[in-house]
């Protein structure tokens, strides 16, 4: 059904039959190209995202936003990145060199790794893992290490505090996030993202799992370190947090990682709760990929709306909210879901 898969098949046939490449080599070659395509896709999203973020922030502050480069300032972020490449790459004398240097790359890689299992349409996935959502949560936790590395390696007190805060915040909010996704997994009985998507053909899981959706939404804001829960980079306390000492291209890698993580979290939200690539109102003539992108960007819009509407909370309020409100509520959701499932099975026999 999807034109992308048809292209891949044509390319594979051309490689094996046309120029006689061995099947295994052709498969590896195609995988490498697909991985590159995914990375390019994420980076293309990034340009749109940063532009959207600036325009949204301008909209909510009743400003105009960037409007000098390209149509409505669209090329501001590429120009920013080019400038970053030309800047001096400062490495502090007291920094822990290998840790400092690898931290920014680690942050980028962990943000990209999550994309291995995220399907963007029927079959449009690098590896349709049968424990896809489990893999996503595990990789999301690994991202914490990059931030601690950055905070520790910089040998700066504010960076270290930012790194510790990120660790505390991300570990606390991992739990409600995993619990809220568990409700959906209980309903479908599968950890595979494509199966979960197919199970929502009739009703989106946002309706039976509204509590889980709210928990997931709030905890994913904390996971991606975005305002109002971006305590790890709170300017009024920590200057810039864990990436304080990074300049030039290393700094921009952190920005790239943040937005790549945001797209991944939004994609998971739209697959788990908003019906993935299932069409709305039976409009099947629009391809599933387009529906998926529309839902991802709807989620991103919600995230940006939150970011530019609410002020930053204090760190103890954040931790209290995570442990005292979100975890009980997500546990309650699991409890209610179990009762509902039991009742449903008792009725239908």
């Amino acid at each position: 059904m999807d034109i992308f898969l048809v292209w891949v098949d044509i390319f594979r046939n051309w490689l094996t039959a046309g120029i006689g490449v061995p099947a295994l080599a052709a498969e590896i070659f195609i995988k490498i190209i697909l991985v590159l395509i995914v990375i390019v896709f994420v980076c293309c999203n990034l340009i749109v995202l940063v532009w959207l973020e600036r325009k949204f922030s301008a909209f909510y502050a009743m400003r105009r936003g960037p409007n000098r480069l390209g149509p409505a300032g669209f090329f501001q972020f590429p120009v920013d990145i080019v400038k970053m490449l030309a800047k001096e790459d400062i490495i502090p004398k007291a920094a822990d060199l290998p840790v400092f240097k690898t931290a920014s790359i680690c942050a980028f890689i962990t943000a990209i790794l999550a994309w291995a299992v995220i399907p963007l349409g029927k079959g449009l996935v690098l590896e349709d893992l049968n424990i896809g959502i489990f893999y996503f949560i595990a990789i999301g936790s690994t991202g914490t290490i990059a931030f601690i590395m950055a905070g520790f390696g910089s040998n700066n007190k504010y960076s270290l505090l930012g790194g510790m805060r990120t660790a505390a915040q991300m570990i606390s909010y991992e739990i409600p996030m995993a619990f809220s996704l568990l409700g959906v997994v209980m309903l479908t009985g599968s950890l595979n993202l494509s199966d979960i998507n197919d199970a929502q053909r009739n009703v989106w899981f946002v309706f039976p799992q509204i509590l889980a959706f709210l928990c997931y939404f709030i905890s994913s804001i904390a996971e991606t370190n975005r305002a109002p829960l971006d305590l790890s980079e709170g300017e009024q306390e920590l200057v810039a947090g864990y990436f304080l000492e990074y300049s030039g291209i290393r700094y921009s890698l952190f920005m790239v990682a943040e937005y790549a993580h945001l797209v991944a979290v939004s994609a998971i939200a739209s697959i788990m709760f908003l019906g993935g690539w299932n069409p709305l109102f039976g409009l099947t003539f629009i391809p599933g990929f387009v529906w998926m992108m529309l839902k991802i960007y709807f989620m991103i819009f919600l995230f940006m709306w939150m970011r530019w509407t609410f002020p930053r909370v204090r760190i103890e309020n954040l931790m209290h909210f995570g442990w005292k409100v979100l975890i009980p509520v997500s546990l309650l959701n699991i409890f209610l879901t179990s009762i509902g499932l039991y009742v449903f099975q008792a009725i239908t026999g």
């Binding site: 600036r54 922030s57 301008a58 400003r63 105009r64 936003g65 960037p66 409007n67 000098r68 480069l69 300032g73 501001q76 120009v79 920013d80």
Partner: peptide
């Protein structure tokens, strides 16, 4: 009123 960000 001034909006510095419009200039990049």
């Amino acid at each position: 009123f001034n909006d510095l960000e419009r200039l990049g």
